[in-house]
Write a protein that binds this DNA or RNA. Structure first.
Lengths: 260, 260
DNA sequence: TCGTTTTTGATCGCTTTTGAAAGAATTGCA
DNA sequence: TGCAATTCTTTCAAAAGCGATCAAAAACGA
């Protein structure tokens, strides 16, 4: 697993610990001491530091991974992302819905980020977003960007919280492209964090059309915070693995459903 | 790995270090000393320079590669080399003014960006900023971040425009660290863009203390858009090339002037 | 070539990191 | 519940690393 003869830099060592905990879920102080060949005092200090950064949680005897939804983790770990090609296809299909001079909203999430990457040449558009990553992708060139202010939620790299409404209340977009952690026929859209869902709901109010981008892996998943019911959503873009009943029922409810 | 018998030119040596860090992710001062056959003092200076350029990040005992997702610093890269070390020193001196649990504001600019890089471990702080770069630097870990929303001004990578006031009106910071394009005794602070100066002026109103970070090259320069007079500014941090009359006059007007 | 500027290396306090030790707290087990 | 074993926190001192300073060396320009 871990091996190193010459001393390891402290931040490097902490990174080893962090990624190990993330992967394995738990780790014991004693194991780390043996692997990293430093004293338990140092290990404890590292764990304390990492806990302070919110990277893990200390427990008696070691540390455990912080409880974050596994769905959400996948968002920013592009490598381990199975739905890679589905997401790209969904993003491309969404791109075709964008008209000239549209003002559009993108929220956080890997699918919408892929859509953002397709907008580098589109200087005709106005993009409103609460996603730091989307803004960073288009920082050099692309649409006019209005970034929603607010508190940065690190795990999703989006702006959330009460301050977001200050800006959101003042803009209106033609089309809002939204991601979600899960969706199901009964509960509509759900996501892990209430702050996040609050922003999404607010945007849905301001948007001419709300277009949900969600690969089939999200179908039937229910997360903690409810975003909205299907009545606010105008279209769903998913992939062809979406169980038939979803497409059927949603179309019956008046949504446009497209499968990439 | 790295070996060389005859002396290596400084830029060449730095390039070796840079590419090594990029490839390996981390490097120790001691290893570099042995490989490059120069003193640790020289290695440290190289690392300091490279850090100033944003090519790597120094840590105790060596340096590590910068995160992938940070924004490129193309705009600042080349021409400002002369002021590199001044800016770094100014940023460090500014850092010492930050107290525990402070809420601070950083605006755009290369000096404040350097200050931002020093805040990675400071989870006690609250950072308010309109700088996309500063936010991107601290996206992984660091202070609580409140990003000012608004329109992205590409050239400076900052948020400007009417929407900024929506958020700015609702926050108050203990200390605001501001950059400027130019300052002179008659006109005070000036910058190139009125949108930019509007935000700066707004922040100056909300801040407990306004601290100007400006290398001596800015002294006497006057730009298009007036930001504010000296009455709004509480302190100036510059470098020791600042002409004496600036320090003298400003101190007489009640400012704290520090030369890094 | 000479004088100036830049780079380099050595030294000295100072800070950070590390490991060990002692006492307090937690856990497992009877 | 009480005891033993383990783990944790606190404290302290040693070690490693650091920034600042200064003088020597090298590079540069006239």
């Amino acid at each position: 697993m871990i091996r190193d003869h010459n001393p390891v830099l402290a931040p490097q060592r902490r990174e080893i610990i962090r990624s190990f905990v993330q992967k394995e879920g738990v780790v014991r102080v004693e194991d780390l001491r043996k692997s990293l060949k430093v004293s338990v005092a140092t290990i404890r200090r590292d764990l304390e530091t990492l806990e302070g950064m919110g990277k893990l949680r200390r427990v008696h005897g070691g540390a455990v991974a912080v409880e974050k939804n596994r769905l959400e983790e996948a968002v920013f770990d592009d490598k381990t992302n199975r739905a890679e090609s589905e997401k790209s296809r969904i993003a491309k299909m969404a791109y075709r819905l964008i008209d000239r001079n549209d003002s559009i909203y993108l929220d956080g999430g890997s699918t919408t980020l892929r859509l953002a990457r397709l907008l580098r040449e589109r200087t005709d558009l106005t993009l409103v977003t609460n996603s730091l990553r989307a803004a960073a992708e288009l920082a050099e060139s692309g649409p006019r960007i209005l970034l929603i202010g607010g508190e940065l939620r690190r795990i999703s790299q989006t702006m959330v919280g009460p301050l977001t409404s200050a800006v959101l209340g003042q803009v209106r977009v033609d089309k809002a492209f939204m991601g979600t952690m899960g969706f199901c026929l009964e509960n509509g859209l759900t996501t892990t964090d209430p702050n996040e869902s609050y922003v999404k709901a607010l945007v849905a109010e301001q948007a001419g059309r709300v277009i949900l981008l969600a690969d089939s892996g999200k179908a039937g998943k229910v997360s903690f915070a409810r975003v909205s019911g299907w009545d606010k959503v105008d279209a769903l873009i998913s992939d062809d693995n979406l169980p038939g009943r979803f497409a059927k029922t949603l179309r019956k409810r008046g949504l446009k459903v497209r499968l990439a």
